[in-house]
Amino acid sequence: MIKLKNISKTFTTSSSKLVALNNVSLEVRKGEIYGVIGHSGAGKSTLIRCVNLLEKPDSGEVLINGVDLTNLSPKELRESRKRIGMIFQGFNLLKTATVFDNIAIPLKLTGVDKAEINKRVEKYLAIVGLENKHGAYPSQLSGGQKQRVAIARALAHEPEILLSDEATSALDPETTDAILELLLKINRELGITILLITHEMNVIQKVCDRLAVMENGVVVEEGSLLEIYASPKHETTKKFINSQFPNDLPKGLIQQERKVGEVITLSFVGEVTSQPILAALAKEFHVYPNILSGSIIQLKEHQYGRLIVNIQGDGEETAKAVAYLKDRNIQIEEVKGNDLEYCSI
């Protein structure tokens, strides 16, 4: 559906050169929600803006349904853009127009007739849950409501693809969840393919089927949500996953626990979550697992859990226990020092 091939983009100012994208390739399949995560400056914003050519790549191909947008005439490009909706962090609504007009004006400008405009505004305002806000001005709406109007505006063109440029980054956690629910609904019920970028792992975790992690203009890791959570490889990916677990263990505790045994984190995905794995450990080996902290979060379709455990026992038995856990596809990392940094063992 969306295929980016070897996209590069460098921003040049009189004093410096900034490589925003360095040979990035990506494929988004029809009907999926694909997330790109990265810190600010990673190039993800430039990447999503390359999909509808708001930013023109220096080299590479942008294929939408097999058509390379970089080869189109301005008129053909405008036609293609109508099939690609986009929502933004800043909503980007007309301040001087009502909710109705904010959706109707772009439709009018793209040549949709009046009866059809009225029909579509009704339909999509209902889908985003704002059917009685026709006459309101953006200044009278909350952030979440403004984003809903922006979503309705994008949907009203009946696009195949929706690009979401940090659409929830300006919203509070509760509103973020509501907007993510809406994106899921749009994806399921209208079959719209969604490409989103974000710097928040919880956005990825809740809605994405597949994701890419970006750093310094390069995709450093890519895969399905499950794969990435089950075995993250790159440091940045691990940091993003760790960011979802509040590590509020007292500093002294870790040091103290390390005197009596290894302190490790166990991360597990899917069925394993419901197995009494630590009980089995105690039974099979001469070790005594002591849980220091633990939580389970919901990924889009699976559960992902993490425990911080102190395994008390002699070195050999502990090593066997760790091997046993690894056999069951559990990710193991040692808790280093007192600052709760993780490293693979």
Binding site: K82, M86, F88, K95, T96, A97, L109, A150, L163
Partner: peptide, 26 residues
Amino acid sequence: DRGVLEAYEAMGISTKDIIWNVMIRE
């Protein structure tokens, strides 16, 4: 706001229409 102009550009609306219906209007 530059973002609003960009949003309209992303919807496939011509610069001429953006000038009249977005820029001057806003």
